[in-house]
Design a protein around this nucleic acid. Structure first.
Lengths: 185, 185
DNA sequence: GTCCACATGTAACTGGTTACATGATTGG
DNA sequence: CCAATCATGTAACCAGTTACATGTGGAC
């Protein structure tokens, strides 16, 4: 039950149409909550039906017509309620760690290349976040909203830093491993 | 498509019944790939139908009867294939970061208590991982399989370390914030 | 006038979650 | 014999993914 709240947050930051939301999810919000345009349109319909958002004026109900939404007071209230409510952290699911554990049983052949690829991807993501930090949070700027948003960005930066370090370490371990993995027939 | 492979890995480590698997998923494997008993039974059925695993002898097809499975050669091959195949990392989904971003818009009231609660949970998890490390990976033990499994555990430890640090930092920021959050009416 | 980008949607499917049902075994 | 626990399962639902459908408006 997080997608509707992600959309409410995005719409409060700036009223938008479905496609504009999709694009913003590909950027900032999508860094920790991704969504496709199909999900977004479906959810916009539900939110409107529930009276949490409404379409802005000049309603053309036609198909190819742009339709922008804004958040209603009930939507803001629901978002505040949700943001403040206690929620247990969901256990992570990480395919790469699972594959490594499988490799401990069926052999490490082939996985090293993908570790390298992941390392490159995480490095790129880290560089992107650091670019955003430099651009959006220069030393002077530190109002309350800025500090919260910066905090969220820091989480992204530190997570990517962790992954690049861990993958680097993992590849070093692989270099020391005997040529053929364990139990590989 | 990861749950079947998680199960194959677990069954290769040790042939088990559905409930035994469920318990092991609550422990080690579940740390990075959780599953409920319903999922596991459903998946065991599919894996058996696909000829990747088979029920061990003394087949009582009755309902309350224990039924253990072992991995067939085709299952091992499939696991090796999957473990070696390139896979893109899935974007994370993190509710807490989303809530913090929402809080930047609708106000921070209430969220601080939950940050504290999360901090306590992550500290506990970290302690648990460190306990496992001390127990299962004493300095002497470092065969190839051990090193891979240790690597996976290190990822868990470092991730929990990251979260405890980040949450501590976040709470410090909150302490410095003006009493009432931004834009909270 | 036709092609392409913009924009909104539908349908089918997959995987995960929640709630419940059923039988077997064991301790008191 | 009854309750608790072990053990396996069904069904309904929900969220996310993939593939496809449809319409608009502007560039050429």
């Amino acid at each position: 039950m997080s997608l509707p709240h992600a959309i409410l947050t995005a719409l409060l930051e700036k009223p938008s149409s479905g496609l504009e939301l999709t694009r913003r999810f590909d950027k900032s919000i999508g860094y920790f909550w991704s969504a496709t345009h199909q999900q977004i349109y479906r959810e916009l319909g539900k939110l409107e039906a529930d009276g949490l958002i409404r379409a802005l004026a000049s309603e053309q109900p036609a198909r190819g017509q742009k339709k922008s939404y804004e958040v209603l007071p009930a939507g803001r209230a629901e978002l505040a309620r949700w943001s403040a409510a206690a929620q247990d952290p969901k256990p992570h699911r990480d395919t790469l760690l699972l594959r490594l554990r499988a490799a401990a049983v069926v052999g490490t052949e082939g996985i090293e290349a993908d570790l390298r690829r992941h390392l490159a991807l995480h490095r790129r993501q880290l560089a992107e976040y650091e670019e955003i930090e430099k651009r959006d949070f220069p030393p002077g700027k530190d109002g309350p909203e800025d500090r919260l948003r910066h905090l969220v960005l820091r989480a992204g930066i530190d997570l990517e830093t962790f992954w690049t370090r861990w993958l680097t370490h993992a590849l070093e371990e692989f270099a020391e491993l005997p040529a053929e993995g364990p139990q590989s027939r």
